[in-house]
């Protein structure tokens, strides 16, 4: 492709090619503090025009790569960074075999990690991002990588995709943070990517042992309940994109995870409350 960019996030390397320079320029700026890996990439994403003339006329981006969604709607080139991020997620979701992938966020202190999972919109990205201001390093947003052989969580500290109101909240909490461009009117509203704090990036290759599995829900009065291992297991199989593909390795990894951690569902009205509840569970 005409323009390209290589980057390593935790143990995974990506190559992103683009027909336009702008998405690559934005990626270089967003990922400026990540290793710019130029070896053979684990995954390739291509941002290509939806029709040849769409490179110039109302440019619109199709996400291509090792894996594609055939009927995905193209995005305007102004959202090219979002397309690249979606493409990276797609390659991971479809192609990752080394780790059990959980749709979740994770934070850690030293070598002990908390995995937070839940439905989209439950607030786990925002909570994970804001916990960075309270002594936690961000290990992952979107995808948590569980290594079947060791039971450890490996960091995958991609920029956190924050939406709408969460953008201003995080901007106030981290005035010196490094951000991607604000993208308005995406299919999910306004989106802006927050690069994890330096401690999260510096520990980008340090795995941690999961000790707490949390099912947080934002916007409700503070409440906490234990979650049975069976329920946690079912919810995590649903939150994994490659559980079935990994077969027995996935089964052993997931049953080992839910049996080895404290499990709790928490409802919280604000991050302060959530942080207090987490400290008590921790």
């Amino acid at each position: 492709m005409r323009h390209s960019f290589h980057v390593r996030v935790g143990p995974v390397s990506f190559r992103i090619g683009s027909a336009w320079p702008e998405p690559i320029r934005q990626l270089r700026a967003l990922y400026r503090d990540y290793p710019q890996d130029v070896g053979v990439p684990d995954f390739t994403v291509r941002l290509a025009p939806s029709r040849p003339w769409r490179r110039w006329v109302r440019p619109s981006v199709m996400i291509e790569g090792d894996y594609v969604i055939p009927d995905a709607a193209p995005l305007p080139v102004a959202h090219g960074l979002l397309a690249a991020e979606m493409g990276m997620n797609l390659q991971m979701a479809m192609g990752q075999r080394r780790f059990l992938l959980l749709h979740a966020a994770a934070v850690a202190r030293d070598d002990r990690a908390i995995v937070m999972t839940g439905e989209s919109g439950a607030g786990k990205s925002t909570l994970a991002a804001l916990l960075q201001a309270r002594g936690w390093r961000l290990m992952a947003d979107e995808f948590v990588l569980l290594e079947p052989s060791s039971g450890l969580i490996h960091p995958f500290p991609r920029p956190v995709s924050l939406k709408n109101g969460a953008i201003d909240v995080a901007a106030a909490a981290f005035p010196d943070a490094h951000w991607g461009p604000l993208m308005r009117d995406t299919p999910k509203g306004a989106i802006r990517h927050l690069v994890p704090m330096p401690d999260g990036l510096a520990a980008g290759e340090q795995p941690a042992r999961p000790v707490l599995l949390l099912f947080p829900r934002f916007g409700l009065a503070a409440e906490q309940r234990p979650v049975g291992a069976g329920e946690a297991f079912v919810r995590l199989t649903q939150a994994s994109t490659n559980y079935v593909i990994l077969g027995e390795r996935g089964f052993a990894a997931l049953t080992g995870l839910v049996r080895g951690v404290t499990r709790a569902a928490i409802d919280y009205p604000d991050v302060e409350t959530a942080a207090t509840m987490i400290e008590a569970l921790w």
């Binding site: 049975g228 291992a229 069976g230 946690a232 077969g247 027995e248 089964f251 049953t255 839910v258 049996r259």
Partner: peptide
């Protein structure tokens, strides 16, 4: 088959089918 106790339930991995 591989069995794993999950509190009151048991997860069973059936090797022949790969189904949990």
């Amino acid at each position: 088959v591989v069995l794993a106790d999950l509190d009151e339930l048991v997860a069973v991995f059936h090797r022949a089918s790969g189904i949990t």
